[in-house]
Design a protein around this nucleic acid. Sequence first.
DNA 1: ACCGTTTCTTCCTACTATGAAGAAAATGCT
DNA 2: AGCATTTTCTTCATAGTAGGAAGAAACGGT
Lengths: 386, 386
Amino acid sequence: MIVMEKTPTSPVSRERSREIKRLSVISAAREARVLSRADLAELTGLPPATLTALVRDLVAEGYLIERGPGSGTNTTGRPRAMLEFNPRAELVAAVSLEPPRITCEIADSNGAVIAHRTARLAGDMVETVCQFVLELVDDARPSLRGVAIAVPGVSVDGAVRLAPSVGLVEARPIGQSVQHELGVPVIVDNDVNLMAAGERVAGAGKDVDDLLLLHVADGIGAGLVLDGKVRRGASGAAGEVGFLPLDGFTDRAYSGVGPFEAMWSANAIAERVVALHPGRRPESPVSELVRLAESSVAARAYLDEVLGAWARLIISCACVVDPGRVLLSGAAAQLDDAALARMQDLVSAKAPAATEVRRAVLGDQAVLHGAISYALSAAVRLPSIP
Amino acid sequence: MIVMEKTPTSPVSRERSREIKRLSVISAAREARVLSRADLAELTGLPPATLTALVRDLVAEGYLIERGPGSGTNTTGRPRAMLEFNPRAELVAAVSLEPPRITCEIADSNGAVIAHRTARLAGDMVETVCQFVLELVDDARPSLRGVAIAVPGVSVDGAVRLAPSVGLVEARPIGQSVQHELGVPVIVDNDVNLMAAGERVAGAGKDVDDLLLLHVADGIGAGLVLDGKVRRGASGAAGEVGFLPLDGFTDRAYSGVGPFEAMWSANAIAERVVALHPGRRPESPVSELVRLAESSVAARAYLDEVLGAWARLIISCACVVDPGRVLLSGAAAQLDDAALARMQDLVSAKAPAATEVRRAVLGDQAVLHGAISYALSAAVRLPSIP
DNA sequence: ACCGTTTCTTCCTACTATGAAGAAAATGCT
DNA sequence: AGCATTTTCTTCATAGTAGGAAGAAACGGT
């Protein structure tokens, strides 16, 4: 009747107290960037005596850098000795798997990329990822805090499952293998989830705890951040909004492609744009459609259809999770200001709660920032208390 | 650049360590019901020496009861002295506001109701709630851990907003007022959210961390539990699935009633049932429809329409949040086994991930169990560590 | 040059986390 | 019946520490 998993250690052990204090200080410093010991005392609640020793250790380890007296607001009293958080003390590897390509970037916890490499995927995936990370990290390996691997399609428990448009086949859990090889936490997730996480920590969602990122590309997917946490779903399929049954009774669904995305993805839009304006298939189909709509009644009508469809998707999501803010990414971010305003109006008319629609702002950097937030969360996670 | 809210206390203070130890033991005991000190050592990680003193305190306070030697599995050695968790040490008040009625129940943390009262709402709501709670708790007031207030419609930050079908008007935050009067934590939430929480802790969702409860009554609403936590939404409007735009271009929406629920709520179904089989309006319209479908082709066709619509709603929710399990409540729970199986088939055919459809099992008790879980969570919450 | 103020460091001690030792309570064996 | 062994629970002892107090440092103002 009492089932034991991992035997817990004492929640008030000395080791744990030490970790909690370190985490408090590191988190406060990472967020403030530059601050004094007095600031740390206020932010963490730790007494000055405790902080003296702790800061000494963190300076020795390279997390904090003494920066000399600061321009404090006090007119009297001993000037504060300012400390600067060293983002280079925490490196993160962000790996993107987009068969046939693999991209690897090493960044510090500020998001500054210090090394990167792109190559064709060949041979064993786990070996390739480990090799790239180790080569790029070079002699900064002790500062590597974690690895985040972005994949198209749904990941479940670290196993990569079929992504419809790229033919990635299910492999043994690569996250666990890489973690075993590199000895740091490794997180594998859908690239749209990583984008959502990235916009949350460093982009258009920095000031909210809840958002939905709508990504329109070959498929249509959404990343959800709810209460500050990415929502993956019971089977890892949260955000599969391409499968929403919004257009009544269409039976165009085929394996791996949802009915909604079959009609409203960037691919589908590109086909219509070519039909409306014969010529080469546009690289940016939504930009092209917006351009055509300026002078073509048919294009304008089609743009209205697209906006209506995407609005219904957003309203559906608003009804279910009430994210408060929706970020448009990929082809959806190509809408101009007028179209974006139209979209906002359509959503506001029917959504049951205030739902703000904006463009995502990080673009290609979103996955990287998402990877950083994932890796740092995994690196310093304390076991939870019931 | 450094913004201070409430000055934090030390995360490793002696007071906090004491609270953490108490919480660990109380939580483990509440879950196990009967266990020994050795069990507590294994479950919490606290050393035996620590537990001796702590258990003595909790026995003195009435949380634990000494139960004498247990029938242990050991063949030798000192027998375990079993302890029993005392649910009466933790009382919870669950208040239901359904204008013009108010219902109040006092229950222990097992869900056993020890007192209840229903009356017409008259006079000041805060005074009425406080009066009922105090009268029912009587001299067990020291054991009152919290109050949960269930309201129809969306609650936001403790303020009750308009519930479409019952005309409840926005009031000043009643949760804060009641909390101030009673001196215990008070949570106010939508009754469907409380149902979902209740099924999660004590009903059809006990074995999962994620579920969606679909409640069909005068309106249609959903309660979401994601990663063990109720999802309320940025504006408190998560689960407003009655507003889903699933039936194309209907313009039947009017103030406060969503387009989907206008067509597929229990009210709408009752109207059609009367049209199909003239007579008195049925008390249980879905049961009646299922019965009529046995012998009427028209009724059977309409039942198929209802199942199809509800399935599209469930598929929409599965696409967005991937709950893994959907519980049917209210009128939706009136479906018979055959209809439930049809519903499951429809959902399985189109949902992007495995989505199990079941009936909720707690019925009227769901809100109570939800209230218990809310109140206990609020009563023993520790401030989080960054 | 001195005083007052604020920040940071050192000192000190009451408290405590927990290992070790001891006591209690059983079963099994002879 | 008595003893050995085992397991559980209690008591004891101590190394470590959380944090208050005292002291030192570093300014600005007079």
